[in-house]
Nucleic acid binder design. Structure first.
Lengths: 232, 232
DNA sequence: CTCATGATTCAACGGTCGTTGAATTAGGTG
DNA sequence: CACCTAATTCAACGACCGTTGAATCATGAG
């Protein structure tokens, strides 16, 4: 039996919810649940509105996800492009350290977007796969440029496969951000934050030793990721 | 209006479906869809039986997943334990190469189980998380032992953090198996199989250069992963 | 043959999901 | 004030999900 129409007010709540706030909420819920498991109802609850409102601002759940990507990737690509400027004469190892800093700052606090991107690459829908791979290609190209400049300057050993090394460098960094914090308390007996800090430093040292023309040369001091100098 | 009872035979089909066949089907569907998205109906369709039959052999979907893990992990751990035997006097770099071989052989053809394990570690249910981390700990311990033997023999540089290095070594290898094949055709212009082959070789060379006591010493020849010698 | 038992299917339950159409309200404009 | 439009909510639809209980069949033992 259909109950009689309710007497609740049906209009907009005192606080407006715009598309950007919806994306904030989606980011949080995607981070917790993943793309498939995150429900529009949960996103709406997080944003404090009705699920149907999402369809006023976006065409579908998938459109919401691509809008989320469009908000996240451009700044990363912009900073990486600036960092890969050939006129930057700093040691290559320092510039690689800043690559980690850029990823850390832009994606560090958001495990959802990373797991999401990775998950969609490995087994996502075809359309989303191409979208993500396009964004990733732009970022990866800059790191590759940086490595090739290092080879040209004689700092990086020739014979290195720049694209493969880029894949190694970036991919393991994302794993350090993603899964090292989850296993660190159990396996390394340290806090998640310390794990990421030590992990990034250890990874850069190992990676640089692996690609440097002179692997035994001491590393220059690496600024702490929390310090001001780390932010270009 | 409920239609009258059908006249289809209700008994068992000519082909029996036992628990192991159900696990085979589950493995395939989990591989395609992931744990959450894989439906019991899809698994049953893959196995050629009714969804309800799953509940005759397993208590729940989650129990099916843990049964799948119990079928997969023990052989890996057994082989790794054998490889980490301290009386094995082969060069450490060769033994590390065999670690890759073991993972490759046991998990190489099954992206589902890998993505699944990783996904459940990063954001899985609490019970499953502990289950998986327990299995992973047993495998990781053997690799760590191997690295520590390398340090004791003077082949690996002291000052290396063995557990962190283990994390790097194994984790990036899994990424090579998982995502390199997906991006290789687009970024490296090579086939997925060639990408895994070159990726594993390149990774071992870079990693070994990063941890070796003498990083400039030439590597011994690494047997091909397809050859007989690769299988201990 | 009879019958017990294990294997399998059917149909349904309650729940959640993405999505939609209509109803409703707030705020600005005339 | 009246009116229009943009923003928001409600209620529902159909689909699929994990799970269950009862019914059915196959098979082997007595």
């Amino acid at each position: 039996m259909p109950r009689p129409p309710s007497n609740r007010p049906r209009g907009p709540k005192p606080q407006r919810v715009d598309a950007d706030q919806l994306l904030d909420a989606a980011q949080e819920v995607f981070a917790r649940e993943g793309l498939r498991a995150a429900s529009l109802r949960a996103i709406a609850r997080q944003a404090g509105c009705d699920p149907a409102l999402i369809y006023y601002h976006f065409d579908s759940k998938e459109a919401m996800f691509t809008a989320l990507l469009d908000r996240r990737f451009p700044p990363v690509i912009r900073e990486l492009t600036h960092l890969a400027d050939p006129s930057d004469a700093r040691p290559t190892v320092l510039r690689l350290w800043e690559v980690l800093g850029i990823y850390h700052r832009h994606l560090g606090g958001d495990p959802g977007i990373r797991s999401l991107v990775r998950g969609e690459i490995v087994r996502g829908t075809e359309g989303i796969q191409e979208l993500i791979q396009g964004r990733m290609a732009a970022a990866a190209t800059q790191v590759r440029n940086l490595l090739e400049q290092g080879i040209a300057r004689g700092e990086v050993r020739p014979g290195l496969h720049p694209l493969l090394a880029t894949f190694f460098f970036v991919k393991l960094h994302l794993e350090i951000l993603d899964v090292l914090p989850m296993v660190a308390p159990r396996f390394l007996n340290i806090s998640p934050e310390a794990a990421v800090r030590e992990g990034e430093r250890g990874w850069l040292e190992l990676f640089w030793r692996g690609i440097a023309a002179d692997p035994l040369a001491p590393l220059p001091p690496l600024p702490d990721s929390g310090s001001k100098e780390f932010r270009p």
